[in-house]
Design a binder for these strands. Structure first.
Lengths: 363, 363
DNA sequence: CTGTTAGCGCTTTCAT
DNA sequence: ATGAAAGCGCTAACAG
């Protein structure tokens, strides 16, 4: 009746896309709706004959089962949440794309949720509220949120399936997808050593940030192994933003004119350092070499282009969704991807290495 | 029964967050569930007394009505789609954030969907399929998708409420939020004229792109008004990517060494031009001045920082959601925002104008 | 292999 | 102002 009302309120004639239901399909196929349901869900209990007949009919009718009804009946929502507070838009979008592609294949949509707030408590509340409201079937947690142990533990207690992207390395009994950063950083610093650098500086994110600590200790491990031939003259901590790179870059250049290599914990900060140097007339890479991390588009777009470490972001996101949706995987399942150094002019490379037509969407 | 089964399958003891239903609230409040429903939906027909009692109880219990059930009962999904194929991640994320904030206040979530494909037909199919699968209550269309008349008309026929962000200016009887670009471009070009430039080049996106055509004609209008004192020596069309700016920037610099001002239709391409110039040793702004459009973070991060035109992206997105959800607004409702020139060193500014701590999330 | 029944948690309609 | 009943489109559980 309600349905009829809607149909009649519209002026007749047009090919009114009155929503098909599973009943219509069942009636037209001459089977019970349960059989149709079984086909939709790839469940057994339907003869191959019937199955293909129903499949064909659904195809022909363009029937798409109502997510709303399925959601209510199964108490699943077919929604995944991608939760972040990461200021690097390119990073987030690339992850979102990887997640969207795989999720889409499995009939899920991805809600990108920017957690709001600065204090951890505000973020926590915002995310909890989001989780409750949106009713996602699972959450992907991006760094730096995924690095907060207390937050992750808190969310895990909510009974929502969780996968951390990156995040720290402690065992939280929460599934995780991350990168093996250390070998790439060893490679990176060794290349600088081979170019004869002895006076290094390191620019990290927050000093308590896990990724910063990891990256810093990888750098100092390599330098320590030179037996004092090369040293870390200055260590600064920003907040992974361009602005902090700009400020602390200027500070390093001013305080330690002897520094000839500045290793930064991400590309935004590295870009800030390059910007600060160039605006003061300091030549990059002539006077100082600079490296970043993440291989954001920005790293390639700056002049000079910034040497960085590339993570297979999209593949990680894709895998994260698979892990999230695979109930057979243990809660402490961890997968580790490799990452690679991309050398560019900011460390003295002269040829052009990149195909700049690379971009996140593959257009 | 099903519910009981779930509860018992879990080992007892923990504070199992067994989902509250409207029935629980009704029982505890001593009213019918219909009354609770009325309160949830701010409907009349409940005494102020009862209403506030129910409100208090819901608050206390932390009750959040099931989106799944509401969706099925109302045939609304409380989901909004943000559909784009825009390679500029910062732009998309900023819009998504503005949309998310307002949508959240109204109980909606935003699904960011990157439309896949290059050919218009592929994009169209991808979006239609997304619309059908996700069952959003409304779609926000971002440029450049929003500029395709055929696509917009096609989607409008799907009976899904639509708001175009930017997009062309023809009347499609589809709601639209856009910017008044012309005055800002007049301002921009006039500033260049005042600096004495006479030899201009223009670098646009696709030649058939509406935004490119609009921006080009604004530029040539100003130059035309100089009665030949200043001229457009070269016009090139790329695809709004950094890569195309790099390639065509090099081409312009090579073909027309006399050009001293290159006006670009977005920041990515402007950054490409700057990059191309610097890599060839051409001084910016000393030899050539460059301008962009959109005021992406990139514009500020490059050295020299690029003069650009800022749109109030987040406010536009916020308004777009309001418009999308307001059934009283006519289908041809259009709102136009103002945008402003942000002058930077790429056009010779010497002081620092920006507060680089600005960023999309306000962290 | 196939069908029947009874819900999922809300909102709608219509009575009181 | 309030409530009882029916139903949204699908799936779970249990029959045949």
């Amino acid at each position: 009746m309600r349905q009829g009302g809607q149909a009649f309120n519209r002026q007749g004639g047009e090919p009114s896309p009155e929503r098909l239901t599973i009943n219509d399909v069942a009636r037209l196929a001459g089977v019970s709706k349960k059989s149709v349901s079984r086909v939709i869900n790839d469940e057994p209990g339907v003869s191959d004959d019937t199955r293909s007949k129903i499949r064909a009919l659904m195809q022909e009718l363009g029937f798409i089962p109502s997510r709303k009804a399925r959601a209510l009946a199964t108490s699943k929502s077919f929604l995944l949440g991608l939760v972040h507070n990461n200021p690097n838009a390119a990073y987030v979008m690339e992850l979102a794309l990887g997640a969207q592609i795989v999720a889409g294949e499995k009939g899920f949509e991805v809600i990108v949720h920017a957690a709001r707030g600065v204090a951890l408590d505000d973020l926590r509340n915002d995310i909890k509220q989001f989780a409750a409201r949106a009713g996602c079937d699972g959450l992907l947690l991006l760094p730096p949120l995924s690095e907060s142990v207390s937050l992750v533990v808190d969310l895990a207690a909510l009974q929502v399936p969780l996968v951390r992207i990156a995040g720290d390395e402690s065992d939280l009994r929460v599934r995780q997808i991350r990168c093996r950063e250390q070998p790439a950083i060893f490679d990176l610093v060794n290349r600088l050593l081979q170019k004869g650098h002895t006076n290094f500086a390191f620019l990290g994110g927050a000093s308590k940030s896990n990724s910063t600590r990891r990256r810093l200790s990888a750098v100092s491990d390599v330098l320590f192994a030179t037996n004092g031939r090369a040293r870390l003259l200055q260590i600064e901590f920003g907040d992974y933003t361009f602005a902090s790179g700009l400020r602390l870059g200027a500070e390093i250049l001013h305080a330690n004119p002897d520094v000839t290599a500045i290793v930064c914990a991400n590309d935004e900060m590295a870009a800030g350092v390059v910007h600060a140097a160039l605006s003061k007339g300091v030549d990059i890479p002539g006077k100082v070499m600079v490296t970043g991390f993440d291989d954001a588009p920005l790293a390639m777009q700056m002049w000079p282009p910034i040497t960085s470490v590339r993570q297979p972001i999209r593949a990680m996101a894709a895998r994260a969704v698979e892990v999230l949706l695979d109930p057979k995987l243990p809660v402490d399942h961890v997968e580790v991807f490799a990452c690679t150094v991309i050398e560019r002019q900011s460390t003295g490379l002269t040829e052009t290495a990149d195909d700049p037509s690379d971009n996140a969407h593959g257009y």
